[in-house]
Design a protein around this nucleic acid. Structure first.
Lengths: 192, 192
DNA sequence: AAAAAGCGTTGACAAATGTCAACAGGACAG
DNA sequence: CTGTCCTGTTGACATTTGTCAACGCTTTTT
């Protein structure tokens, strides 16, 4: 169960963990199974742990006054879920996170993770690389949001995230792009 | 000239640097003055250093096919400028960064900064906190972009970034919000 | 098997936002 | 001082996108 995580760490850091370090990681990261539609976090909750997705598919979304959902993030295998703001500041989250497919997670609490960073430098290294990747991706997404038409945003999305296109339905992708499902449907029709 | 940076580091880390560490920081961070309108980075350049804004105002923006500018980031005193993606990956930048007011920077090259992180742990700590703040802010901005109307995005912007409203003209703020200057002008008129 | 919920599509129409052109005042450079 | 550029505003109009309702189809639940 933890091996996916070890592989992932190795991939990001070119470092192999000692057996001792592996044991520490196994102690800190707890397996958690979520059935489809089950919440990992609900609006108002404080996000007390981060999760590493071993298998499955999850989404993070906000709900507006009218009850409409807006997908802020998708997460598949080998990616992380959790609301960073709530996690870092210990404030009630603005978001919901739930499983879109049955999902296996490895969750780690903040205190344990901070301690691990000292014991397993490779983990810290990995975290920084994750942050880097994340900040580059969000920068591009913001640029797309303010610069591109809906059509162009969708084209870029398909090119950069074909995995998401396969695993999530169109109305979620539309919401991720900041448009309605009807508009996305028309864009797709036109693009043929 | 470097004292603003020391104050900033202290504020973020509750750590005071030793004289030795201060000397190392002074060696690595080079003062750079930019006149209004002068480029720090142009599209296609590789971003070889990050800058800490001691005084002044800068903006990072992209230019679309039609020649329209889209502001991706503003930076005032005590904030950082540079294109993270280009800096991290050593790829040509998609953005331009220029001074909106006469600006004093402290710039630091990647290799020097990485070395400093080892010598001055407080700097590393600060960098991580910066990344955290940045990722929380961008998450909110993305959520606003996909969830809110232009009017609401502007209201939130004014509330969260009054400094920007004072120092940058409306057409730049409009572009930051992903709308045209005419639309912003109408929103402001209506909001009275 | 039947019913319900989820998904994608379409049409008619409404609302939001963009585009283009013009204008006015202020800042600024020659 | 004078002209130019920058900024913000306004109006008329075009385009994009959203809203609402309906439909067919599949999947899930009962």
């Amino acid at each position: 169960m933890h091996s996916a995580l070890f592989t992932y760490i190795a991939q990001y850091t070119q470092a192999t963990l000692t057996e001792e370090q592996q044991a520490l990681v196994q102690q800190a990261f707890h397996p958690k199974k979520l059935r489809k539609k089950q919440y990992l976090l609900q609006e108002g909750d404080i996000c007390r742990y981060m999760g590493f997705v071993v298998s499955g598919a999850m989404r993070q979304y906000s709900v507006d006054e009218k009850g409409a959902e807006h997908v802020v993030q998708f997460a598949l295998e080998n990616w992380w879920v959790g609301d960073r703001e709530s996690y870092l500041m210990l404030t009630p989250s603005l978001y919901n996170i739930d499983a879109w497919e049955d999902t296996q997670l490895l969750v780690v609490e903040k205190a344990d993770l901070l301690q691990l960073y000292e014991q397993v430098p490779a983990l810290l290294q990995m975290a920084r690389q994750m942050d880097d990747r994340h900040s580059m991706a969000t920068q591009r997404r913001i640029n797309a949001a303010i610069s591109f038409s809906a059509e162009k945003r969708y084209a870029e999305f398909v090119e950069c995230h074909p995995e998401f296109v396969q695993r999530f339905p169109q109305h979620l992708i539309a919401s991720y792009l900041g448009i309605t499902k009807e508009t996305l449907s028309r864009i797709r029709k036109q693009a043929l």
